[in-house]
Amino acid sequence: MERTLADTIREITREHLEKNNGLLLGQAISAVGWVNNTVPPDCSGIIELPMADVAGPGIAVGAAVVGRRPILVIRFQDFIFLNSSLVINYAAKAKDVFGQVVPIFVRAIADEGKGLGPVHSACLHSIFMHMPGMRVCAPMTPEEYEETWAVFMANDDPMYVSEHRRSFGQKGEMPDIVIDNADITIFSISAARFSTLEAVEIVKQDGIRCNVIHLMWLKPFTLSSRLLEPLESSGRGLVVDSDFAICGAAQSIAYELMTASGLPVKALGREDRSSGAAHHLEVGTPSSLKIAQAIKDIVKIGKKVRT
């Protein structure tokens, strides 16, 4: 049976706990489902944290100081505000201030679309891009997660891994789509990558041709030819993210792409309002329809050629 992303996370974790003397810490880890089947049950090195949202992650950071390379599980990304003081203020800064490396792997899990309401449905990697000292990424496939883990183990930096429950069942990879005579290049992040692929099918019916570039690494962010060549040939861009649009990854990366290419690149992210429980009041990743509309609006403004 083809493995899912959840299987991949679980097996990476099992190996870390059983062979690397690693630790995994989090709240309610052993509760129903072992965090969506991403944690191997009954391994040694799993620490159930008390419901102490500041102390718990601080304890994980302390374990990182003495070299245990802990995995810290944050079951809902909204919890990250209380949970991140020692991650942002210590783990991310100690290398600059003290030369003290604090490699901690923060699994921050986003969710949406299940009536989760205002404080269990966000995706918040952008604030971690804003602060110095952390690597930030949003792997959505098994191989991307393996790459994420390999980078974590090969370096000493703390890492913010923006996960999304929509991806846990993902099997197989999500290669970039680069086609001839594309009208636009869409750069997608987190669960917005799934919505973008749906949107591309929708606008195809209007004869709009899209490149799709999947962005897993958010920080450090590299403006490679992989990103710029499709943008330059299509003449327009759109960055789509599951996080909020304002001051978010989408706007920041759109700015980088625009500055580097001289081409118009728009940004689309989560709406600037609180999410409600009722379906019609929920806020989440831009829907495929919304992304499709954004694509049509941008294509309408005409193709600009880089001069």
């Binding site: 102390a55 100690a94 003290q100």
Partner: peptide, 22 residues
């Protein structure tokens, strides 16, 4: 002696985590 970043009391969970890890 592990460096303190300047937020009071945050050295306490760090210390506890170090004891857990070592």
């Amino acid at each position: 002696m592990i460096g303190h970043h300047g937020l009071i009391g945050e050295n306490v969970p760090l210390a506890v985590g170090a004891a857990l890890g070592a």
